[in-house]
Design a protein around this nucleic acid. Structure first.
Lengths: 129, 129
DNA sequence: CTAGGCGTTGACACCGGCGTCAAGGCAAGG
DNA sequence: CCTTGCCTTGACGCCGGTGTCAACGCCTAG
């Protein structure tokens, strides 16, 4: 399989595949003419990468998942290293959610206050009390 | 008040203040020697900006809040334009929280699956079934 | 032979808020 | 006069994943 085919099969671009390879995540052999030749298994690897990226992982974090897949496991997240990363990410995501929840509260409070303010004398953009 | 003083009073850097000015958020007069001269009211403006940035707003979104303050209101979020932005941001934040919640669910599911997998024959990084 | 469609590497652009360095002007004290 | 410390503008770097263009090689069909 050449790079164009893998790209379209994986729903991404050739640029992206080369980038992943450059960072050691995807592997390719070479034809006599220098073209990259991909094993069928790489399609799964790319899918794993895309899925994890979509979940907010950085490429660096994805490394163990790919290694886990290459080790012959049917999913990339069953290996100890992957689990560590998963736990770390879960904590991280929890932190984000907490922050966003706080911010959400602030926004609601400010909106409420703004609505209450409509009853006060100054309610236009240009008023000068 | 010169830029250094405003910076330290606002807990930020001179670079940052010039950046805000460049984007039309903070205003400064000029001394005869070209030094920026800040009105005391600008301190409040800078605080408003910092606070909104911390809440995840972009500089562009902050513009109406500053205008609202300059219009003489005691808080920047009571004007109609600000309220629009607040609503938009609230929806945006809700979206983020929703996404993150989904991702959190996925992470927990994968962790659970990984733990269950420990009972299966292949549980090391290097195993080859 | 040529056009066109695939492949190759390399490098710049983007986003956004700032750090940071460069090179210089101005004020004040020793 | 010199140092020190404030100020000025201008410009590059960062982060991370990808788009995009350049300039070129390979292969096939007309």
């Amino acid at each position: 399989m050449l790079i164009g085919e893998l790209a379209s099969r994986a729903g991404t671009s050739t640029r992206t595949l080369r980038y992943y390879e450059q960072h050691g995540l995807v592997r390719a052999g070479r034809d006599a003419n220098g073209y990259r030749q991909y094993d069928d298994a790489e399609l799964r690897v790319v899918h794993e990468i895309r899925s994890l990226l979509a979940a907010g992982f950085a490429l660096e974090d994805i490394r163990p998942f790919v290694a886990c897949l290459r080790a012959g496991n049917d999913s990339g997240h069953v290996c100890p290293d992957s689990v560590l990363v998963l736990r770390r990410k879960l904590a991280e995501v929890d932190g984000y959610i907490e922050q966003l929840t706080d911010i959400r509260q602030q926004l609601r409070a400010q909106l409420t206050e703004a609505v209450a303010h409509r009853e006060s004398p100054c309610h236009t953009q240009t008023c000068q009390p």
